[in-house]
Design a protein around this nucleic acid. Structure first.
Lengths: 246, 246
DNA sequence: CAGGAGCATACTGTATACAGGATACAAAAG
DNA sequence: CTTTTGTATCCTGTATACAGTATGCTCCTG
């Protein structure tokens, strides 16, 4: 009944990060063997990518056999991927009828932004109490990197670094539950946000730096306030753009 | 016109355990036809129940065929249920190894309590701004009901009403994302909390009443503060009990 | 021409089949 | 007696099969 679990094996398995990193398998010092990623994982990443890039537009009916054929697998892994997407709010599952790409609404976007603001503000507060020197160094590097990518106009990289900065703050909070929830909310916010957002210029990195200074100075109150203002500004930017669109 | 679908008898299959699972299959209004609950849903409820009641203890290896046989279905619905349980943190999924009931740790419980406190405090604040008169009435009824159940010593009912009160507060916030996250966190907190908790007597209902008064008076600041203190007290209670155990 | 019944088809939900890897146990070698 | 190797068995991951319902179109009827 109880099965012994060997820790060394799990290493590369739960790499939930970017799907198109070439370093799929870990081949570090000990010559670890690359294990095949379960098809359900691959299918999940693939479909989510199709959704976030708008290739599969909101409201679309996801037909299992079509996706299966397109991905070159059977329906089974596709179903499991869709289940997970449903749990995370990316698709809606109508029993007997099928899966449909979730259609974002204005109010929902606003509510997500509000929750994100809440989670990240608390993260910043806790990070000011718990961040390790290494984590602070890492954050400092991200700001530098973000600045240089901004000046060189590499939009995609800026978005990625920005996202990584926020994630690292939540990690530095030391609260894993918080990290997980924030990551999930953040990803969905980004989905809603992307089509209307332009990058909030380099001012954003100044704000990040102030925040990091507060964290380094172990000033939770100030860190929280700064993050709160920062996310609130993002929210306003979004609402402005949303209003322009209609 | 739709061809009428006559519900089969198998709907009744999963009355296992918790009888008052929300209105999944039953439609009261206007002679709606009852549709069969998807087996994956039933399996999910059944397994989750087994986990929360400690019938399936932490660390246990969930063998798909065993569960399938026990529930009288095939492996497929069981797999889908396990997937969902994994997403929600109830079991851990190790590719190639199988599913294992998640083992709670002290720090994790504390982190969950911290996040719950955060989410519910914000909920209370928002509820003070947005709650409708009907919602306030409902909350008032819950307090009455909670008090009477407390005096009659009906522990299980007290727990349920308490849970429902907190959930209703999050609903009254008007933020659905918040409601959903809070519900998920709350359920897990309860899982951790149950074995060491005795009910925090009737003082708890006085606190609830004060909170509701603040909500009715449209005083977000006070509502937030009260909820924060309330959840913090719960957290302390938990930590005391946890310490006694070790 | 309009409306409805009936049929064909597509898709989901569920079950079963099959292959490869993991575990455990036993036997053989040192 | 300890360690290694071979083997039998179990379990997961994936594919395929099957049943039943929803949808859409055609044809019939008024």
């Amino acid at each position: 009944m109880y099965t012994v679990y060997i820790p060394s094996m799990k290493v590369q398995f739960f790499e939930t990060g970017s799907s198109h990193m070439s370093t799929r398998g870990l081949k570090t010092a000990a010559g670890q063997i690359q294990r095949p990623v379960p098809l359900r994982e691959a299918a999940y990443e693939a479909i989510l990518d199709l959704i976030t890039t708008r290739t599969l537009s909101p409201g679309l009916h996801l037909v299992e056999t079509e996706l299966a054929e397109q991905l070159g697998v059977s329906r089974q892994p596709v179903r499991e991927a869709i289940q997970r997407l449903s749990n995370e709010g990316w698709v809606e599952l109508r029993p007997g009828y099928g899966a449909f790409v979730h259609t974002p609404t204005e109010t929902e976007a606003d509510q997500l932004l509000a929750v994100r603001s809440l989670l990240e503000t608390e993260s910043a507060r806790l990070a000011a109490e718990n961040a390790t020197p290494e984590q602070i160094d890492h954050l400092r590097e991200l700001i530098d990197s973000g600045r240089s990518e901004t000046t060189s106009g590499n939009t995609e990289a800026v978005v990625r670094v920005n996202s990584e900065f926020h994630r690292s703050i939540t990690v530095a909070s030391g609260n894993k539950v918080l990290t997980e929830l924030a990551a999930q909310v953040d990803r969905r916010v980004r989905w809603y946000y992307t089509p209307v957002a332009r990058i909030r210029g380099s001012a954003s990195w100044d704000e990040h730096e102030q925040l990091l200074d507060a964290v380094e100075a172990r000033d939770p109150g100030r860190a929280g306030t700064l993050m709160s203002e920062h996310t609130e500004r993002t929210r306003l930017t979004y609402n402005e753009h949303a209003q322009e669109e209609g």
